[in-house]
């Protein structure tokens, strides 16, 4: 019903069908050729992702944006089939806007999580067929509870809270260990880091992932290509600008200088 502010329902009533139909017949490898990560820092949550899109061995595109702003206080980072992931992001973006405008209040953070989970569940057939598996991270600032939150999902729509951090994609095994080490025995826990230091860690983590995972794009200084880093705090979502990324990379990440 439109009166409940459910945009997805409105779309379905208009004859919209989500997802690519497919039948699970052949066992396929799940391809999530990417690295995305999110962790809590002093003021909120940082979400970062590399920018490479691959098809098998081929690099399709090196300027993909996998960290998508859904609304002023939430971000979805995507790993998996981009077509499905972008479609999900588009549905979510419109759903949250529609809810806010019809109901005259913001959708709760739990409501937002539920919305993503529902879409993933709808997408299970395509995920199993190998044509549409998506394993996203959803991070945001819960304005009611005044705290940052991170959730990650498996391709079937189960949702897990990442208390301190979450990773997804093919490069994630590499950096998961690093994150654990950093957070436990590092100079200071991630959650107390100021913004700039958090960004340095994110750049280092993504560079490490690119070192061991061919499907993760690292930093390409010649092409002026840096990962996407977004911060979500009380004030909303902010993207770190390229010049700032460059200077941080040159001063604290690169060792050749």
């Amino acid at each position: 019903m439109g009166l409940q502010g459910d945009f997805y329902q409105v779309l379905k009533e208009q004859g919209y069908a989500f997802g690519i139909g497919g039948q699970a017949k052949v066992e396929q490898d799940l391809i999530t050729a990417t690295t995305i990560l999110a962790f809590k820092y002093r003021d909120g949550v940082l979400v970062a992702g590399d920018r490479r899109a691959t098809a098998g061995n081929m690099v399709m595109y090196d300027r993909t944006d996998k960290v998508l702003e859904i609304d002023r206080h939430s971000v979805m980072a995507i790993a998996g089939v981009p077509a499905t992931a972008y479609e999900m992001a588009r549905i979510l973006e419109h759903s949250f806007k529609y809810y806010r405008r019809t109901q005259l209040q913001e959708l709760s953070f739990e409501g937002k999580l539920r919305a993503l989970s529902t879409l993933l569940k709808q997408n299970v057939p395509a995920a199993l067929a190998g044509t549409g598996a998506v394993a996203p991270i959803f991070a945001g600032y819960d304005t009611e509870q005044e705290t940052a939150k991170i959730y990650f999902y498996d391709i079937l729509g189960a949702e897990f809270e990442g208390v301190e951090y979450a990773v997804s994609g093919s490069g994630s095994p590499t950096i998961r260990g690093i994150l654990h080490y950093l957070n436990t025995w590092g100079e200071q826990p991630l959650s107390t880091m100021p913004e700039e230091q958090a960004a340095i860690q994110a750049l280092r983590l993504l560079t490490s992932a690119a070192e061991f995972d061919s499907a993760t794009g690292g930093v390409n200084r010649d092409a002026n290509l840096y990962p996407v880093i977004k911060f979500i705090a009380v004030g909303g979502v902010r993207t770190m600008a390229d010049p700032q990324l460059r200077s941080l990379f040159e001063s604290d990440v690169s060792r050749s200088v």
Partner: peptide
């Protein structure tokens, strides 16, 4: 208002 919202969002999405 609801019919405007619905039209606008469906159009904006599609």
């Amino acid at each position: 208002r609801f019919s405007l919202l619905e039209m606008a969002h469906v159009e904006g999405f599609n």
